[in-house]
């Protein structure tokens, strides 16, 4: 079969065929898409069989080698859960208040879009793909371009869909980009820029400034007193407890919009601003980043992405490099939500 072809011819044939296939696929070919879908369906039972063989061995190995670590991690997670239960109540109240405000102001929110829960069934087999595979597909209404989140925030977008499975391109992939906005407050900026007399360049979204003060004081005095007897003592117990003394100030929120890009699984995300002044005046380490939304965005506004961990000035350029650490732990994904938001087809592309 091969002896009739010289080595150079084999090489030329392989290279030309591959280049032809790459060109066809990059231009978007329905036959190739269909072939991928059929292949994924064929490979699925084989993967299940291999998993059925590999999983008991894997579990046995982990049981032997990682038992102590797992026990320690379990204890740490229980402690963390206890702490989070307290803050959960507070967070739920804030979310309800937020939804109420959105309703009153007739604004849309990500919470109005129903998410579809999915299980992560596999990772990318190659070192040059930053994807995960989930167990929902077109049969459940999943479409290419839909954003995917986990409990902590955005993790990626759907790039390929078969009837029962979908591939999610993670936000850290170099080919991933999305419109994002930095949320910071005037107070945050002023605290880190005390001598600055210029106002932030961002667009003030809210000019609500109100101050509410709640103070509850309860005083309990217990006096055990009898007639003063010689040699006896009078015990006076006075307990004063201040339950809360909170001052809540709704500050002006400054939003800076830019394009967030991935740089690879081991590197932080990168944010490039459309306005070069933004990164100098309105963006500080610790500020939150979320999706910006808009007609050409791949996700609705308001999905949290992460926090700014570094703002570095570029030499010879007024714009800065802003690095973001994602909220979601992308190396440990088990269950995710597909936000059933269909982005503009022009934004999805191929």
């Amino acid at each position: 079969m091969f002896s009739s072809l010289s080595r150079r011819r084999v090489l030329a044939l392989v290279v030309i065929t591959c280049l032809l296939l790459i060109t066809l696929d990059k231009r978007g070919n329905p036959i190739i898409d269909r072939a991928r879908s059929v292949f994924a369906t064929l490979l699925s039972p084989l993967d299940t069989s291999t998993r059925a063989i590999a999983l008991p061995i894997e579990r046995a190995w982990y049981g032997i080698s990682n038992y102590d670590d797992l026990e320690r991690e379990n204890q740490a997670l229980r402690d963390q859960l206890q702490t989070l239960r307290g803050t959960d109540v507070e967070a739920r109240a804030a979310i309800l208040e937020y939804r109420e405000l959105l309703r009153v102001n007739q604004l849309s929110s990500t919470y109005t879009i129903e998410p579809l829960a999915a299980k992560v069934v596999g990772g990318a087999p190659s070192n040059f793909q930053n994807t995960v595979e989930i167990d929902v597909g077109s049969n459940k209404g999943v479409r290419v371009g839909m954003p995917v989140t986990d409990g902590a925030g955005l993790i990626g977008r759907i790039t390929s869909v078969s009837p029962e499975h979908s591939i999610v391109l993670l936000i850290t992939a170099p080919e991933y980009a999305i419109l994002a906005q930095v949320l910071s407050t005037d107070e945050q900026i002023a605290a880190e820029q005390p001598t600055s007399s210029t106002s932030p360049s961002g667009i003030p979204v809210s000019d609500l400034t109100s101050s509410t003060s709640t103070s509850t004081t309860s005083t309990t005095s217990t006096t055990v007193a009898g007639e003063a007897q010689p040699g006896s003592s009078t015990t006076t117990s006075s307990t004063t407890s201040v339950v809360a003394n909170t001052t809540t100030t709704l500050l002006e929120v400054v939003r800076e919009t830019g394009v967030m890009e991935g740089q690879g699984p081991t590197r932080p995300l990168l944010l490039r601003f459309t306005d070069s002044v933004s990164s100098v005046t309105g963006v500080r380490v610790g500020a939150f980043v979320e999706t910006a939304g808009g007609n050409n965005s791949l996700a609705p506004a308001g999905i949290p992405i992460g926090r700014i961990t570094a703002v570095r000035q570029q030499s010879g350029n007024s714009s800065a490099i802003v690095e973001i650490t994602p909220n979601a732990n992308l190396s440990r994904l088990f269950f995710v939500n597909v936000v059933l938001y269909v982005p503009n087809p022009d934004a999805v592309g191929k």
């Binding site: 392989v14 290279v15 065929t17 591959c18 280049l19 032809l20 296939l21 790459i22 066809l24 696929d25 990059k26 190739i32 072939a35 991928r36 292949f39 994924a40 490979l43 990318a124 087999p125 190659s126 040059f128 793909q129 994807t131 790039t159 390929s160 591939i167 391109l169």
Partner: peptide, 20 residues
């Protein structure tokens, strides 16, 4: 080619790399 079909790389990428 099988690898390309199973993943999200453009068809022919892994085929070319593995062929070489």
């Amino acid at each position: 080619l099988l690898y390309d079909l199973s993943g999200s790389t453009p068809l022919g990428t892994m085929a070319l790399a593995y062929g070489l």
